[in-house]
Write a protein that binds this DNA or RNA. Sequence first.
RNA 1: GCCCCCGUAGCCCAAUCGGCAGAGGCAGCCGGCUUAAACCCGGCCCAGUGCAGGUUCGAUCCCUGCCGGGGGCACCA
Length: 971
Amino acid sequence: MTTDAPASSGTATPPEAPLRYTAALASEIEQRWQDRWEERGTFWAANPTGRLTDADGNHADAEAPSFFLMDMFPYPSGAGLHVGHPLGYIATDVVGRHRRMCGDNVLHALGYDAFGLPAEQYAVQTGQHPRKTTEENIVTMRRQLRRLGLAHDARRTFATTDSEYVRWTQWIFLQIFSSWYDDDAPRPDGGTGRARPITELVAEYESGAREVPAELSGGRTWSELDEVARRRVVDAQRLAYVSETPVNWCPGLGTVLANEEVTVDGRSERGNFPVFKRNLRQWNMRITAYADRLIADLDLIDWPDKVRAMQRNWIGRSEGAQITFDVVGGGTFEVFTTRPDTLFGATFMVVSPEHPLLDEVPAAWPDGTSTAWTGGHASPTAAVAAYRAEAAGKTAVERQADAGRKTGVFTGHLAVNPATGAQVPVFTADYVLMGYGTGAIMAVPGQDERDWQFAAQFELPVVRTVAPPEGWEGDAFTGEGPAVNSANDEISLDGLGVDDAKRTMTEWLEQRGIGTRTVTYRLRDWLFSRQRYWGEPFPIVYDEHDLPIALPEDMLPVDLPEVPDYSPRTFEPDDVTSMPEPPLGRNEEWVAVELDLGDGPRTYRRDTNTMPNWAGSCWYYLNYLEPGRRDVVVDPELERYWMGPGHDADSGASGGVDLYVGGVEHAVLHLLYARFWHKVLHDLGHVSSVEPFRRLFNQGYIQAYAYTDARGAYVWANEVVEDESVPSGFSWNGQEVFREYGKIGKSLKNSVTPDEMYDAYGADTFRLYEMSMGPLDLSRPWDTRAVVGSQRFLQRLWRNVVDETTGELTVTEDAPTDATLRVLHRTVEDVRTEMEAMRFNTAIARLIVLNNHLTTLPAVPRAAAETLVLLLAPLAPHICEELWERLGHPTSLAREPYPVADPAYLVEETVTCVVQVQGKVRDRLEVPPSIGEDELRERALATAGVQRALDGRGVRTVIVRAPKLVNVVPA
RNA sequence: GCCCCCGUAGCCCAAUCGGCAGAGGCAGCCGGCUUAAACCCGGCCCAGUGCAGGUUCGAUCCCUGCCGGGGGCACCA
């Protein structure tokens, strides 16, 4: 049996011991202290300036280091919490309380990420307005978390759905909309490339300092463009822009989704619905402009290697060349390749089905077209149209199922290989993706496995340009080797290694003006609009030209309008032909709006999309610094104090939140988006820090066993018992059941709630158990039965100080003995080390040792009790406050200095020296720690154990590691 | 298929620089307390570190291969 019914008889208060530390007494103490902390403002963090002072009205002490501590933004679920949820909140609370006792000014608060799909779905299900259900859920969650005793500054809480917060989310959107990325602008850190206000771009065009890019101007100068054309030129360069691009359309959710929200199976991360590629006009954010900085600055921050690797991987930087190919009969197109050295082996071309080259294809098949290439169609026009339609209807799942079995069709186009001059056929195939590189490749079957497969399928020629090793029997050879078959009148790569060949070829291409060195990224721009109700509206209107116009700041926030129906228009999950239909479009009075934006009152049309729920979590850390500001998104002085580079010893060159704790599931979503927004705000001068989160810590998950019966149905885990008589070892109601390990939740019937723990043990026991289960970053199984161990510890602590019957203090004023002082100071030293390294499980183990030692004494010396209480206070704050008060201290221990060990008591009088012969322990010696090597060697050689083990053999060498080890090596 | 992390007692987990395999908790067993039981107190049992090699005076720790578990990526040119 792994999960007892939580209430056990041991927690009832026995009449003979009215002050035993039972769940009832713990609850009384805990709630009393929670009220006091709130009334006294114990955990108010003082800002250096402005309205937020500490409880005494003081601003931050300039001498005290600041420590900005954060949990990942919780989403207030309607389902309530289970025991896995608080793990991270307890951990950050322990860190915060510990840092505070170490003298830091700790900022720790918790807000709510309350927009988004789940909130909306919950509201639709319950038939209520999302604002109502969201607010109710926040109330419930606040109550459950307050009962944990978290030392948050309650003045700094907020929800992303607050109108005051939405104002600034929209304001930041407008900052991004009103910016462009200047690749050549110098940065303070020495690099080049940063966001600049779009007004500066316009000014440069007007003054002639900058020429309008030809692909945007159609060859005309700025002065030759009319007003609308100029706006199109500028709009195309904004960091937030509207464009018609292939996007992820999810009919089942009724909205488009970002790449990061689509699983590798091509389904929505939420709801697991199919996702289709559709060309739609949508908002995008130019995160790709920051790709290099998002990679490079990973080196500045203290994050788990795993998360940094995931971000690097997601951004997917690859170096190569872009090469121009001429199309026979006119026109050109570009390909991207990481292997320009293999150009001589490019025997055909492949473009993605969405490629513009296919908008016009020859009307008839060229002479000699193989029937294998035509797909049975009479003309390229028909073949390409059919293939394009087929590709558009495929989900990513289907595409993936086909991986390896290549499909495609000849387009009728022929291209010229610039190295060989040969005419090669251009195919279209869906293994080439429009969103990566140029959407077109040169196919080199000799050096690329995918191309080889395609070539085999369509009977295309193979030319090897890298010599495979002797005896190579495989297909494509992608390894290192000398170039072959790679020479023309102007250039020869033959004999060069891959790297040299790449360089030589790229130089030749650049000289000839038909290629350039290029870097490409897997990362795409961030698709930023959703066709849902419960999100931030865009602060954008459109004029008669259908061009976006930013609303002026004084019109913010744009609040959500009431609509007749806020449910999304969803479709059959596989309805490919469906079109998104934003709920905000249902309120025509709101959509059509008359405004005076400078040229008199005119009618505009509002944007009816909403922002993704990531928007709110992209900047919430800044809002903790001083929520509710009307004049500025964040006070620069507060940002420098709490987050600026060098604001404390550990903040480094990047600055940012000192410690950010949360699950690893946001590694490439929230954490990438937030870094992007932060860098834009940094470029525009709103924040001094370069990165939002200096140190990231991923906590593990608490999971639990679940049990299925013979039919595979889940049974209530808390009713399962261990049963030797059945093979699985577990039974439920007398029938054998089978154990699995998985997420805690209602569906697995293994849920345990914090409320049950508060009732059965109290919050301190619950906190202590969660922290003692193992290292914080490891996932581990919940075991309700084991919680009692933490409760026993607190009971023994309580009894060491308070008489269970009378409530009298039992501590003695006598000085501790030398032995007690040694244990005490050893514990202080070790606990400090463990706490600083966030190894709370081992810190707790040391505290238990000390407490058990005190239990053996006739009476506990006050000095030892007080030190123990202070050491334990971050972990079990309520009982420690209570004991601290009973020990005669009128004020909270929240800011008492964390104990420091006296080194005098850390020195051992004797050390056990291990005496080994050939690595095996043969004897032990009690020696003074200061013993010299020579003396130790002599004494070790003289021991009976060594003599017996040597058995007359000579000694070759003796390794001495004074004072702890001697190892004798026989001859 | 590629990459990363983890395998220590029945269970959760410790072990600093390569130096006595055990800090703590749970469960189990024995004893004490008790009219009795629970709570509580004391004590005990329990692994040679997933497997096979290698380096070393000495390996849980470093290296190689394999097995098991977890995670990430996956037609990215």
